[in-house]
Nucleic acid binder design. Structure first.
Lengths: 169, 169
DNA sequence: TTATACTTTCAAAAAGTTTTGAAAGTTATT
DNA sequence: AATAACTTTCAAAACTTTTTGAAAGTATAA
């Protein structure tokens, strides 16, 4: 396999994986392309390399930047904007974790708070079960939230340092 | 807010959250319904409560069972099948983690292995960058994989016991 | 064996998401 | 101020996923 084939394969597969992660295919493909590119690329290059339209390229590059996993870059003497990917995988993982925490965990906690105060006979089995479930979920969500906060704030290599000891390095 | 409104709100919101997790809306709604139900429900009840078709109900109940987060149940003297949700949230989290590991992590490792052996001039910047990236991703994926394996095998309350010490809780 | 009470399947329809590309917007240069 | 080089927007089209419901399948009881 030569380098072009390998890059192509990687980009396609990364796109497919992205979809399972709830990330749109093109966004993941652009990230993959920027990850394997030794130099920043501009819109035209991305469009050509992935055979996508200008609008699509623009939209998804912007999404990557919003997530904090790609950056705009300017080359002196050039008007074009260049883009590069964040290549520190731990940093990417941290960003993605933060983003998901915001999008997934915060709404759960908010929902549970709203739904916590219900009126009615506390001996009704429906009410008993509901309150039990809300309580269980709330405890869980708060534990996960605190744990994420902890690991995100900690050293970027937390995962290594916390767990790898168990595997002797 | 009365119990019916609260349940309704919870079910709808859980469905929306499910979508962001890559889980189909109806599957998440059925899970939510079964989570708040004090007794197991049968197909007819699920269809009616969520206003969905028989096929849709059947398909998504089956998916929940495949994921190991809901169970079939039989009531003696009844021909209908009843369904109940796994209500231990730690158990649900474990199952979901296992499922995602299989669907998301395993394909990455497989891809990286395939793409690792490329032919060409090792001084070509494209090749250098590519090999660097594959190596970084491979190390990361393997660390995450081993860590998940560890925490899944460990006590169900691993999350608590590993991190909560840091919060004196 | 036949009838009945249920569950499962699957092709077509509906709903939802992504992509396109032309037009509008922005900024830098002359 | 006008032009050129670029970026962004957005409505329509293409594509993907989900849902429906009627038909087929299965198991139990009489």
């Amino acid at each position: 396999m030569n380098i072009t084939e390998a890059q192509e394969k990687f980009i396609q597969a990364w796109g497919t994986l992205g979809q399972q992660w709830g990330v749109n295919r093109t966004m993941a493909q652009i990230q993959a392309l920027l990850l394997v590119a030794p130099e920043p690329l501009h819109a035209e290059e991305i469009m050509e390399r992935l055979s996508i339209s200008r609008g699509n390229a623009n939209m998804n590059v912007r999404a990557l930047i919003d997530w904090g996993i790609a950056y705009k870059e300017h080359k002196s003497g050039e008007r074009k904007e260049y883009f590069r990917a964040e290549k520190d995988i731990w940093e990417v993982a941290k960003r993605v974790t933060l983003e998901r925490r915001k999008r997934e965990l915060e709404p759960i906690v908010k929902l549970l708070d709203e739904v916590k105060q219900i009126t009615g006979d506390k001996n009704d089995p429906e009410i008993k079960e509901f309150e039990l479930m809300v309580d269980r979920l709330d405890k869980f969500a708060n534990k996960v939230d605190k744990s994420l906060e902890y690991v995100i704030r900690a050293d970027e290599h937390w995962f290594l340092s916390t767990f790898m000891k168990a595997f002797k390095g």
